[in-house]
Design a protein around this nucleic acid. Sequence first.
DNA 1: AACCAGGCGCATA
DNA 2: TATGCGCATGGT
Length: 280
Amino acid sequence: MANIFTFENNNCNLTVKNIHCLNLDYTLDCGQSFRWEKNNVDHWCAVVNGKYAEISQEASDTITFYNCTKSEFNNFWTNYFDLNRDYDEILNCYKEDKYLSRAINEYYGIRILNQDSWEALCSFIISQNNNIPRIKSIIDRLCENYGDKLPNGTYSFPSAERLAKLSPEDLSPIRAGFRNKYIIDAARKVASGEVDLEAIKKLPLDKAEAELLKIKGVGPKVAQCALLYGCSKVDAFPIDVWVKRIISELYPSGLPKCACGTKGIAQQYLFHWRRNTNSI
DNA sequence: AACCAGGCGCATA
DNA sequence: TATGCGCATGGT
């Protein structure tokens, strides 16, 4: 069933009701995005596409966007949270599978975000052989050093064009180690158009991956993450250590066919479930 | 004090 | 094609 939203304006804030299958706590803290943090009043905050955003969830179907207009919601946030995709229909199909069924029962409301393609690519280059707290702190330092300062003192994610002018040595303050040269190679190829992220969004999955593999430090895992989280490819399927465990333990002959076409969504539920529940 | 972290590039066979 | 190691850094 499609979302038919209802809106309430309070001062500059917009409360949206009748949102289906979106749990902010799960969605913003499940390893797909690294910039969202909860503030002192338990609202989720981040700089998203160059603007500071603050949101909170009052009920399972009710979310308030602070300092946000209805047109900003319609033109940006519906796509960011992928609200036009019918998750209930997708997840309903997963119920025929034993483990997917458990994962969606426990973590109903995870959605795959449509993040900025460059930010997603760069963030998952940083993620390799790394843990989530440190990924976040490296990205924070990258933004503080090379992003634009916003009026409230936060920083935007630096553009590929900005980083393309730097050398790997220039990135030493962010302490990303051996990943510095990968970030710069990605920035240069994206800024020059040698790797065209907008074109990649329109390519089939395999061709899109091949384009991203032109970048030093981008292998299959990072490429699939960039495609899933930044290029709206819901069938992209990043295989990290956790998903590798899930496959070998539960799906030695592959994911069930109910996940066909949305393997990235299934992956996200299984990943979160395996990391947090740790029982079969 | 070793070991690990949402991997990848490179060398070796 | 398939393994194994080094890579920077910080947390446990």
